[in-house]
């Protein structure tokens, strides 16, 4: 059976540390845009940690919510793309073919999660910062859309390795950069077609929610809501 990659993010564990944000930047050759462009809201963060306050001092609460491409099964970004640059792969991923993208930015409008980022200029790496670039990931040019790929290069590498060794992939063997780095292990990645995978099991937790589920995009990222302490339930 084909794989169906999915992710579970446990908001009870996420500490808002931003390790995932930097890991993704390092892995996926996401250029920094500099102060001026960042000031114009052109910074690119394939994953971001949304922070929301609730209530007023002293009864304040904070919620962190990492948001990356939800790899929707019914992805609005795909139907609107005129060139199939945003398309559905055989493994259910929302693929983004940079070479095919002509930069209509329609997909970014259609994506309810605002996880698509546009290259307003050619990316610049002040030499020799470019030496860090990951050769497994293409560098995007001006005028194209980019976004989280679920670290497809890691998925492919894992699948190819397993095939070369003539074995099945092990659960947890493939870990996107954000998942790999996350200190409290708030993120779990795995095959949703394998009912026994950790991701599948967690995705059935009583705390499960989907972001903007009401829109019918059928995301493959599941959020486990913050739990309460047992003492609080009696209070």
């Amino acid at each position: 059976m084909a794989h169906r990659w999915g992710m579970v993010i446990d908001l009870d564990r996420c500490t808002g540390c931003e390790a995932c944000v930097v890991a993704c930047r390092a892995e996926n050759n996401i250029a920094t845009v500099g102060e001026e462009q960042a000031g114009l809201s052109r910074a690119k963060h394939w994953i971001r940690v949304e922070r929301y306050y609730e209530g007023e001092f002293p009864d304040v609460k904070v919620k962190f919510q990492p948001v990356l491409c939800q790899q929707c099964d019914a992805a609005p970004c795909e139907t609107v793309c005129p060139t199939f640059a945003s398309y559905h792969t055989g493994e259910g991923l929302n693929g983004q073919i940079y070479n095919r993208c002509i930069g209509t930015r329609y997909c970014a409008n259609a994506c309810p999660y605002e996880v698509r980022f546009f290259n307003f200029f050619n990316p610049v790496w002040d030499k020799p910062l470019h030496l860090q670039l990951n050769p497994d990931v293409s560098v995007r040019t001006v005028g194209v859309m980019e976004k989280c790929t679920f670290c497809v290069q890691r998925i492919k590498a894992g699948e190819i390795q397993a095939e070369a060794e003539k074995r099945e992939l092990k659960d947890g063997e493939i870990r996107p950069a954000c998942v790999q780095s996350c200190p409290p292990e708030a993120m779990v990645f795995g095959d949703l077609n394998d009912a026994e995978s950790r991701a599948s099991r967690l995705a059935n937790s009583r705390r499960r929610t989907k972001l903007l589920a009401e829109l019918g995009t059928r995301p493959k990222v599941t959020y486990l809501q913050r739990d309460s302490w047992h003492g609080d339930e009696n209070a």
Binding site: L40, R42, R105, A108, N109, F120, F121
Partner: peptide
């Protein structure tokens, strides 16, 4: 020549 960055478009107002 330079890129759409010379316009005022930005995240999330792409149009």
């Amino acid at each position: 020549y330079t890129g759409l960055g010379v316009s005022g478009l930005r995240w999330p107002v792409f149009w």
